[in-house]
Nucleic acid binder design. Structure first.
Lengths: 174, 174
DNA sequence: ACCAATGTAAAACGATCGTTTTACATTGCA
DNA sequence: TGCAATGTAAAACGATCGTTTTACATTGGT
């Protein structure tokens, strides 16, 4: 595992578990097992590192959402929370922590959320056989809600969202 | 307006807009218009101040949710985001920023989310005429989802959630 | 008239922040 | 054999962190 991969993985773990602002660079160097000199040579700055973490996470997350049905969309979320745990959306959290004042971070978040929104629209269209932006918005809300409610209600929120989405989809079909 | 009220209001504004960790005490003293000596005499510590902000916000938020129908629940959220804007849930954000490692904050968040969960269950039971924990969970997910999706999709997520909840409720009734 | 309370302004506390630098070790290729 | 690249360890950078302290002003009640 090269230094870039190791650093990005360590950073994602710490930022996700303890927050971006609360994670100091010394904690990061220790977790990544490298000197601060190497870290900065590799990442440039803390904000750039966070942006890279988000871009990498977007890649991994969106890869799981390459599905054809709304049901599979929520099944993918179930897998995700089983693997990654329930700590809410790292993208929204990063943006909120920095008040949207760190351009590199704000841009990575905006790019992800736009891609996510598009993907939900595509899956709904594929599953339903036609575009339905209003339904897609509802599915997006359920997805986002399951993600955040899971923080204090546990993974059951994802099955609740999945069931709700199935009802909405069935109704849209008839 | 006494010092306690002024400080709490200023703190809520800054913590909400820029994040808890990113808000320094000097910024806080300036916004509250008081010396740091008075601030600490009044609040004790930064974490205690955040806990007070959350407790006060819980009071204000829950007061708006004293309704009898699910529709009114989402109407209340519509009012809330119109007044307070769309920056996600301050409770979950605070907890995430501190990794749950600040007891005063973690407790305030847990208390609020438990009260919120109970309230949603009550409103669903009142509206439906009977308890329905599964439906209540779905409504909670929609509420939380509208709150967080609104950060990047705008207030329309609340009407989307409201419409979805109406469909789920109608189906549960027949 | 005076004491106690309550406030301000500002310096200082040690700690930690993100980042850069200095000095040195290892390694792979020409 | 030697140079360039890539790494480490550790000190240092100035800035800022949350918090306490010192010294002083104002004010309301008995």
């Amino acid at each position: 595992m090269d230094m870039t991969t190791k650093l990005t993985a360590a950073a994602e773990r710490l930022f996700d578990r303890h927050g971006y602002m609360a994670t100091g660079m010394d904690r990061l160097t220790e977790a990544a097992g490298m000197s601060s000199r190497t870290l900065y040579k590799n990442a440039g700055s803390k904000a750039a590192l966070m942006a890279r973490v988000l871009t990498e996470r977007d890649r991994r997350f969106m890869a799981r959402l390459e599905v054809r049905t709304v049901d599979a969309l929520f099944a993918a979320l179930e897998d995700w929370v089983r693997v990654e745990g329930c700590r809410g959306c790292l993208f929204l959290r990063s943006r909120a922590e920095t008040g949207g004042d760190t351009p590199e971070i704000a841009e990575a978040v905006a790019a992800h959320k736009e891609a996510f929104h598009r993907r939900v629209g595509e899956v709904v269209a594929t599953d339903l056989g036609r575009e339905d932006p209003a339904l897609a918005e509802q599915v997006l809300v359920l997805f986002e809600g399951a993600t955040h409610a899971a923080v204090y209600r546990g993974a059951q929120t994802v099955s609740a969202a999945k069931a709700a989405a199935a009802i909405l989809l069935e109704r849209a079909r008839s």
